[in-house]
Amino acid sequence: MSAFAFFGALEIGLIYGLVALGVYLTFRVLDFPDLSVDGSFPMGAAVAATAIVAGINPWIATCLAIIAGAMTGWVTAFLTVRCGILNLLASILTMIAAFSINIRIMGRPNIALIGEDTILTPFESLGDSMYIRPLVVGVLVLFSAWFVVRLLNSDFGLGLRATGVNARMVAAQGASTAFYTYFGLALSNGFVGFAGALFAQTNSFADVTSGVGTIVVGLAAVILGQTLIPGRRIWVAVLAVILGSVLYRLAVAFALSSGMFGLQASDLNLVTAILVAIALIMPRMKKNMKKKNSPVDKSGAGDKRKTGGEA
């Protein structure tokens, strides 16, 4: 794999690290299966690209993309909390509706940003863009990770985590589980919208189909990262999912660029499915290995049998 392909995969992996943060908040923290990220990712890209083409400052355009992504998550929460729709179905409905909304935002299926200023433009003059772009994206991702760690370690974050573990207990303490659900889904999809905005600006285009399979990539990053770096601390889990995203993209890039097993660029979805399956199987394999390697206290078992016989 060439240096250009390596740093390109690193850049994309860091961008999808924001998606992994969002998926971590919904699947791990809130225990909410949210598929609306497939809609909020291209929505962030669509809003940012449309705003930049209209002459709006790229940083303001990125903030608008974050807000648009957060609104997507808010709609999913509204359908679940207020309308009583099953969370999985609610997120699917939001994802489907977002497809048409994204076309409405852009006015066409895709927008090119070639020649437009982006948030990366001021930094590209500092050196080779092949190295500068991943560095800038990495700083933004680390800042987002720091924010998530500080939030989840706060008293408010404790309530957010408790909502995913035992919502009835949270309600019994007088806290609003509905508010935590609204906030959690809005924050999660805000990160995904942020990722979509960065994706559009780094690749110089926004496309309505760019969100297809986003949830799969996010889940793969979360599962792979937490399998390789297990830990109960929040900062360990957050850094693990970001590292999982980077390793996932590097693995995909290596498999496709090296021609391993005769793979081609059109086999991206196949490689994705295989890597996700491996990431899902690994925790179970590790658990089975621990059971086989754990010593059995035969004397204790014998004492129990003996005691039972005497009784």
Rank of each mutant, 00 (worst) to 15 (best):
M95E: 02
L247Q: 07
V75N: 00
A51F: 15
Q201N: 09
T94V: 15
G69K: 05
L187V: 07
L14F: 07
G138P: 08
A97H: 06
W146K: 06
I229D: 00
A45D: 00
T76A: 09
S188L: 10
R104H: 10
I85S: 01
V136A: 09
R161G: 06
T62Q: 09
A240K: 02
A279M: 08
G184Q: 02
R232G: 15
G184K: 06
K292Y: 15
T76L: 01
G231K: 12
I56Y: 10
L142V: 13
N110L: 07
L219T: 09
S154A: 03
K291D: 04
A237M: 14
L185N: 06
N203S: 14
F261N: 04
F191E: 00
M95W: 08
K292R: 15
W74C: 02
N189Q: 11
R28P: 04
T72G: 13
W59A: 09
T50Q: 06
V141C: 04
P283Y: 11
I281D: 05
F41H: 05
K292F: 15
Y16E: 01
N166Y: 00
N189C: 10
T209C: 03
A70V: 10
A5M: 08
V75D: 00
T181F: 08
L86A: 10
P295N: 13
N153E: 06
F183M: 10
T118I: 12
A301H: 13
S154W: 08
L10T: 06
S299Q: 13
G107F: 14
R108T: 14
A77Q: 00
L21F: 01
F32R: 01
L30K: 00
E310M: 13
S129M: 13
R150S: 05
L10N: 03
L151T: 09
L268A: 14
V29Q: 05
L151V: 10
N288C: 11
A221D: 08
M43P: 08
C63P: 06
T177S: 08
P58E: 07
G17M: 02
M169H: 05
L21M: 00
G69T: 09
F191W: 00
L10P: 02
N189I: 11
D297S: 14
I52D: 05
A265Y: 11
V296T: 14
G8D: 02
Y24R: 01
I111R: 12
C83F: 14
V29L: 07
F194E: 01
S154L: 08
I66T: 05
A65M: 02
G193Q: 04
A51N: 11
V296M: 06
S40W: 03
M260I: 15
S129Y: 14
T227E: 05
A265F: 10
T181G: 13
I15F: 06
F7D: 02
V296G: 02
